[in-house]
Design a protein around this nucleic acid. Sequence first.
DNA 1: CATGAATGAGAGTTCATTCAT
DNA 2: GATGAATGAACTCTCATTCAT
Lengths: 194, 194, 194, 194
Amino acid sequence: MGDKSVQKKKYIVETARQVFVEKGFKTVTMKDIVEACGISRGGLYLYFENTAQIFAAVLKMEREENGDVFAESIKEDATAADILILFLKEQKKELVRKKNTLTQAIYEYYFENNLPKKENVLKKQFDSAVKIIERLIEAGVEAGEFACEDFAGTARNIMYVLEGLKIASQTMGITAEAVDREIMYILKSLGVEE
Amino acid sequence: MGDKSVQKKKYIVETARQVFVEKGFKTVTMKDIVEACGISRGGLYLYFENTAQIFAAVLKMEREENGDVFAESIKEDATAADILILFLKEQKKELVRKKNTLTQAIYEYYFENNLPKKENVLKKQFDSAVKIIERLIEAGVEAGEFACEDFAGTARNIMYVLEGLKIASQTMGITAEAVDREIMYILKSLGVEE
Amino acid sequence: MGDKSVQKKKYIVETARQVFVEKGFKTVTMKDIVEACGISRGGLYLYFENTAQIFAAVLKMEREENGDVFAESIKEDATAADILILFLKEQKKELVRKKNTLTQAIYEYYFENNLPKKENVLKKQFDSAVKIIERLIEAGVEAGEFACEDFAGTARNIMYVLEGLKIASQTMGITAEAVDREIMYILKSLGVEE
Amino acid sequence: MGDKSVQKKKYIVETARQVFVEKGFKTVTMKDIVEACGISRGGLYLYFENTAQIFAAVLKMEREENGDVFAESIKEDATAADILILFLKEQKKELVRKKNTLTQAIYEYYFENNLPKKENVLKKQFDSAVKIIERLIEAGVEAGEFACEDFAGTARNIMYVLEGLKIASQTMGITAEAVDREIMYILKSLGVEE
DNA sequence: CATGAATGAGAGTTCATTCAT
DNA sequence: GATGAATGAACTCTCATTCAT
């Protein structure tokens, strides 16, 4: 595939991303994407066979571009508490946005695709985030920033709450205050007074 | 609407429920339901205009039949802790089942329907559950069964974790052990040693 | 299926027949038939799933309507020779027509469909015709009309020649005289002077 | 056209031949051939405009390579009977093979192309074969190998039977024994005891 | 010459929805 | 009320054919 092809594929993925943001996953058709991209009917099929394949490419791109969710939270001399708080703030932004989010599409995609566990990227990301938070808490406790006895349990609890907030924001709607309240609760549990 | 009509409508809703369980909400067609019910194409339109209307009826039926989620958890001389634990056990059952659950369909339905907040039953149920748990915790603390300072915050935390577990069970898969672990964590936070 | 449905199905089969006569089998599309019938796109699918199914119905109709190829050749006091000659004359008509014939379509249909032998109607009809001709020859010989030693062999020879004429008429073109010549040859072999 | 071009054209024709063997004529697409040849889509169009043109080239190649069907049957001091028998044996091989044969494709090609009679190579080949067989029979009779009165009629009969066997082998299936039986019948008619 | 991306026509198929009976 | 035939819009997918490189 030539350089131009790569460019076009990228263009399709980026354009399709917006379509998935707007319509979720299940109801997006090849035609939707063709029209959004302004390319020909057959043209899209040169690059992708179906919407699932396109969505997989969108997810791949997201991962490559966003990199580690924690990366941006890590500054030079940041303490564990700083990093965790920054991470939660990032999550909040995402949660409150609601629109311009792939969240719905991702959930719908994973509803449909009973992938074997190994390939379930969602689970991998979740578990990896739990691990990182666990280590952050541990570091925070050692530094006297946090008070916590069950590092792993607390890390998991945080992640499940975030998932809960995410699905709640998509299905029930959620205010910035509500998110703040939950973040406060988490931090308070860790003995942080902000 | 005659008695027979009421019966038939009920029959449709019950049959449709199973279809939604199997296919979620978005991809269910009127045809799917017509076929599942074994009625005529036109016949279905006498009772419902579209799948959203049918699904709304399914949800209504669920609520009427299940009544309060806590109702069944309340026995004669049950303590607050008993009730809370029973409630969590019920949730676990639901979570582990994964199949034969309306969860996916419900999420998909609320993804699509940006209902005005007031009508969002999901939110109402969530808030109401939070309230009840809050009161349970309060009662438990008074009875010396629980140790907790922020009743409302803890209640919300519990509910968000449950939502998180629910969406995780549908998109990542989740084991009975994983659910147990989270329930344990919650109870431990309340100072309960089971 | 109601009476009207049966009528419509018959109408479709009859109309489709003409399409197959004109285009053979392989290149006929569902659209061709929809247009020939003047019905809606989806309407055809209520009755048939694909062109092969329609063609099978056409063949079935042909068999039901034409009945035995020999039936019409059999008159009251016809001798074996009369019947055979009549049969051959019928075949000639068919051969010379070339147009308005399903021959091409039938060949194309059986090219594609490697049906298990049992279901190959073409073979059945061929074998059955051989049997009948064999008996006709036998009767003719007994009546002193024919001179022949190998009844079965001659019957088969006749049928293969007819097949040969049929495919030749479709692929090379054939004149009425050429057909006559072959019929004469066959009859001469049987010692018939016409 | 340069030498390389000639080579490439030949390569295309040879490769396409196999495609026609496998799929017949009507359903073969330019894409099929492009893919079988492993050349570019546009590349094929530099040499051929459509599948009919390619198939014509395949037929031309066949004729050039196979030369006279009788050529290989003619040995040094072979008698007329030897040659005829060898020819029939060759035909049998072809008939029994069924697969790896262009027969279907040829029939389909001539179904579609109502070529003016003059250009119908199929007919030419048929007529030429009849002529040769006629002369063989004549020679055989003169040599006392055959007993036959109507040379031309018998020659035509033989060729039509072979055509009949050919189409039967493609549409009804035919066993080696069935072919043998017909060949025996022909030879017996000529008074040959094998 | 050769490539292969791109286009757009066209065939297949499925369904929501209507309507005569 | 009920039925189910009929319609037509909407999608999916495949190719012949062209054309810039």
